[in-house]
Each structure stands twice: as C-alpha cells, then as structure tokens.
Simulated assay, not measured.
Amino acid sequence: MDLGLKGKLAVVTGPAKGMGAAVTLGFAREGADLVLLGRDVDAIGPVAAQARAMGVAAEVIRCDVTDEGACAAAAEAALARFGRVDILVNVAGGTGPIGKTGLETTAEEFDEIVHLNMRGPFNTIRAFAPAMVAGGGGKIVNVGGTFGMRGRAMRLSYSSSKWGLRGLTKSFALELGPSNINVNLVAPGMVDGPRFREKVVPQVAAQYGISEDEAAARHASDYALGRVSTDEDVAAACLFLASDRARQITGVDLPVDGGWAAL
C-alpha cells in the first residue's frame, strides 16, 4: 500500500536503534525526508546513512528532548533546512527502575523517568506543532507502552509515565484537531530484541527454572497471537498513523502487542 508519504518531512526522536531505527527506515522506504533528533549524534549516523542510501534527505540534529530550548532550536533548524514539518514521531524514552516496587523506588528515580517519557514529547510537540499549524496540518505519533494501559507491578515509574503520555496525547488531539493535526499513540508490548533476549528471557528462565527457549515461548503464550512483537510491527503502526490513510483517526491508543492489553 502506498501511504502517500513521499516528499513529506518526518521528525523522529530516538532514531538510533530498535523501534526508532525501524521507524526511521520505514519512512525512508516510503520516500519521506527526515530530521533525526537525539543526544548521541554518532549513534544516529549509521541509520541516517542507511536512509540517505534510499534516496531521501536525513538531517541529524543533536537534541536532548527534555530540554525545552534544545527542542525549540531543533525546530528552527528543521524549518531552515526544509521549510516545513509534516510528521513528528516521539520514540525517545526510557524504562526506569525494573524489579522495584513503588515503595522501593526513590523519588529521584520516579522523577527521572516521568520527566523523560512525558516532558520529552511535551517539549517536542510544543516546538514542532506550530509549523504544522502554519502549514495546514500534520500528524503526531507518540510511542507509549502497554504498561500504560493495564499497569504493571514492579514497574510503577514507567507505567505511570506512559499513562501520563496517554493523557498528553488525548489533550493535544483535542487542542490541535481544529488545525487538522492528528495526535495518536502507539503502545508496544514486549518487543523482541536485545533487551528481551538478554534481560527478560534470562530473568524468566531463572525464575521458573526453565531454558531460555522455554522462557521466550512462555512469554509469547501470554499474547492472543502467540508471538512477541518486532520493531517492524511497531514501525508499521507508526507509519500508518502518520499517513493520510489515518486522516480520520485521532486521540487513539493503538496497542501493538499481539493481543494483551486490549483482551
């Protein structure tokens, strides 16, 4: 399906690896030009090079999304280079403390992950949405998580931050809708990758005294489809919501988890 993204300008935060890289390269395959934001520009470089090899422009800008001034400067640089902003995808985020109860989590740990996962998208939307308003519309996609839809013991800080991101998404959807800007949230479940294979699977294997293959299968069995999501699954959802195919969809939470949060 042609998503009609060729020639659009997409801004992606957290593009260096995992879901962010998959989203970035997905836009490149669709012919969209790119502005890639992150603190470690060296890590983003290889992904940008892959995108350029597909024939699109890919500008890398150093930006800490928790810094309001840095986001404003990034927006100015993007507009100076391309003259418009059509799409913003907020992938950048963190996991916070794992394996701690809420009572064990420190105030500093809580503040750090809430600040990153909520203040980051808040800053980037405030920085880039005015250009969309001026240009007659746009698409914003925030990447949340299913723990922000059902909650999760031992992940209180992360879960709280993603619940908050849902509220931010819905409020911006209401406020920016009259300007023809769609604001939606993609909520991945567990995604198969280094963290799943190197941290989650060994932890489950040790907990139940089973092999790592059995642990991976046990985790997948929690989902209606019996499989763990991939980065490409998440990217596909982001691309759809960033396209005019989703022109009448705004303020939604779209789980990409094989059937866990919604069932």
Rank of each mutant, 00 (worst) to 15 (best):
V252P: 06
R52P: 10
F240D: 07
Q50M: 12
V183G: 04
L241E: 01
A53H: 09
A48M: 03
D42A: 10
L254T: 02
A73D: 14
A246M: 12
S229Q: 03
V256M: 01
P121Y: 10
I181A: 05
R166H: 11
N180H: 15
G189M: 00
D67C: 04
F27V: 05
P255T: 08
A224R: 11
R150S: 05
F147M: 09
D2A: 05
C238L: 14
A53D: 15
K162I: 01
L254Q: 13
M190Q: 10
R247N: 10
Q248D: 15
L3F: 05
T105H: 08
C63P: 06
G209M: 08
E112I: 02
A16M: 12
G193W: 09
T146H: 02
N90H: 14
G164W: 09
T13H: 01
K8P: 01
L165E: 15
A187F: 01
D222I: 04
A48D: 07
L165H: 13
D111Y: 07
D2G: 02
K139Y: 11
L165D: 04
P97I: 04
L79A: 11
M118D: 08
I113W: 13
V11K: 12
F147E: 15
A236W: 05
Q203I: 05
G164A: 15
T66A: 11
V183H: 05
A220Q: 09
G135S: 06
P46R: 03
R245G: 07
G31M: 05
M19R: 14
G102D: 00
Q207C: 02
D233F: 04
E104M: 09
A131S: 09
T66K: 13
G99D: 11
F128E: 13
S159F: 12
G83F: 11
K100P: 00
G99T: 00
A127V: 03
R52Y: 04
A205M: 09
V191A: 04
Q50V: 04
L254D: 10
V85T: 09
I210M: 15
E212V: 01
F27G: 12
L79I: 07
D222A: 06
R218K: 13
A80H: 11
M118P: 05
G135C: 10
E198F: 02
R155F: 04
G193Q: 07
G193S: 13
K100D: 02
G26M: 08
E112G: 06
E212N: 11
C238F: 13
A10H: 08
E104W: 07
A77C: 04
A72T: 12
T95S: 14
I87T: 03
A127H: 02
G7R: 06
F196K: 10
Q207R: 12
G258I: 06
F147H: 13
A10V: 06
S171N: 13
G20H: 00
A16T: 12
A246E: 09
R247A: 14
A237Y: 06
R197E: 12
G164Y: 11
G193L: 07
